[in-house]
Computed example of a mutant assay.
Amino acid sequence: MMHTTIEDLIPQLKSQILERLDIDYMDPEELDEEMPLFGEVTGLDSIDALELTVMLEQHYGIKITDSKVARKIMVNVRTLAEYVYENGQI
């Protein structure tokens, strides 16, 4: 499936994140793309970051080996979508 814009990627990534992390108490529409992915609001941790890294590799062929890069792109759904848009196989 071809996605052409970051705006197309955002809802797709929201669904994939919630599915991957088994977050069933939230709908993709409820996940604010500007909200920090990690920290007090979400309760996500380093294990979740690893899960997201695996998800990016499986879905988009993106390998992230540097934790500094991972922290920079996993700020929120929008930063993730921008990185996938620039670097992924979409």
Rank of each mutant, 00 (worst) to 15 (best):
L31V: 06
R71D: 13
D24K: 10
I73Q: 01
Q89K: 14
T65S: 14
N87T: 09
M55W: 07
G39P: 01
M35R: 11
R71I: 02
S15H: 09
T42D: 00
Y60R: 03
T5W: 08
L52T: 00
I62C: 10
S46D: 10
I73T: 08
A49D: 07
E57F: 05
L56W: 02
T5L: 11
E34W: 02
E7R: 00
D32T: 05
E57V: 00
D48V: 08
R71K: 06
Q89I: 09
I73Y: 04
L50M: 15
V54D: 01
D27T: 11
I23M: 12
V54S: 04
H59C: 09
G88V: 13
D45E: 07
L21V: 04
G88P: 06
I64M: 13
M35A: 12
E40S: 11
D27I: 03
I6A: 02
K68Q: 12
V41R: 08
H59M: 10
I17Y: 10
H59N: 14
E57N: 14
T65W: 00
M1C: 06
E82P: 03
D48F: 14
Y60I: 09
R78K: 14
L13C: 10
L52N: 01
Q16R: 04
G88S: 10
E86D: 13
E30Y: 05
Y85S: 14
E30I: 05
L52S: 01
Q12M: 09
D66W: 10
I64P: 00
L21E: 01
Q12Y: 11
D22F: 09
L44Y: 12
Q16M: 12
M1Y: 12
R71C: 05
G61N: 06
V54G: 00
I6E: 11
R20G: 04
D8C: 06
H3F: 15
S15V: 08
D24V: 13
E33G: 00
